[in-house]
Amino acid sequence: MPSGSKVLKLAAVALLAVAVLAFPSIAPNPYILSAGVLVVYYAVLATSWNFVGGFTGYISLGHGALAGLGAYSTGILVAKAGLPPFLALAAAGAFVGLLAVPIGLAALRVRGASFVIVSISLVLILLLVFQSWSSVTGGSRGLVVPRPFQLTRPEHHRIFYFLFAGLLALAVLAWWLIDRSRFGLGLKSIREDEDKAEALGTATYAYKLIVFVVSAVFTALAGGLYALWFGDLDPVFQFSILTGSYLVLMALLGGVRQLFGPVVGALIVGIALEFFKVEYGDTPLHLVATGLLLALVVLFMPDGVLPAIADLIKRFGRSDRTSIREVSAAELREQRLQNAGGTK
């Protein structure tokens, strides 16, 4: 017997699915449609990022590089090795998954700010490699990836919109499965207190590594799909810290503890980015805006918009309960202060 909130949640998910699927039919022109593709692409990336960020609390700024690896692997396998596009995509996903093992082994040794820095260096190293290894990657001139379908531009966007939406559904499903599993509980205990989790018998290093690989595979698949869609890869855009920062912003904004948090965040940030580009062109202004927004979110909505909205609804629904909770929280704080004094 499903509870009221469960029904509400299912209805919301169904509504979201319908909205996502209906978008290509109501998009007024190919430009809006292509912006839609980009937003769904971001939604996949942010959701993929959230396997690591949301469950374990490790903030990676390097996921742009994993997407870039997926894109270049796919592109090279199609353009240079002549593999069928979707076979190349699958191979790229597997390859980046394998590569994620040594990367994860190295990066997940350190925590907190050190991990952030290691993840940044991953991007910088790969950028250098791909810029200088020009015989294979096209260097700074870029790599042209042949289109998989001979279609008109709008049709091309339409198909890729649905491909990205399918990948998004897979990623969301996988996140949901882990979220409710015992493995997921172990990951969340790492987020809460890694040493304590170890002391309770959780193999934290292995846990982090597994979820990092899962995250890398989804990220690489999204990147590979992007290569097939966009058809032109430039190392500067593929291996950019900015992409990684956008993903962090999206996930944090939407809510990293929420299944659909990164999707909602991608919707908001993705649309905002497109708007900025149209209004102001490619200026460093959107960098400033991104930084500002990130600071605002971290300061005022540390749990993201989704929980903030849920809180708001609850507050209006039963204002009496919240007040009781607040009183007892104040009491608790006092009690704790006394206790802290008492142990001395």
Binding site: S181, R182, K188, S189, A197, L200, T202
Partner: peptide, 24 residues
Amino acid sequence: TFPRMTALENVLSAVPPTGLIGGL
């Protein structure tokens, strides 16, 4: 303790699964 987990989840997380099937 794990501050942002419920008391029940805190206790449940003390029996980590072994193997892939157990984990899922």
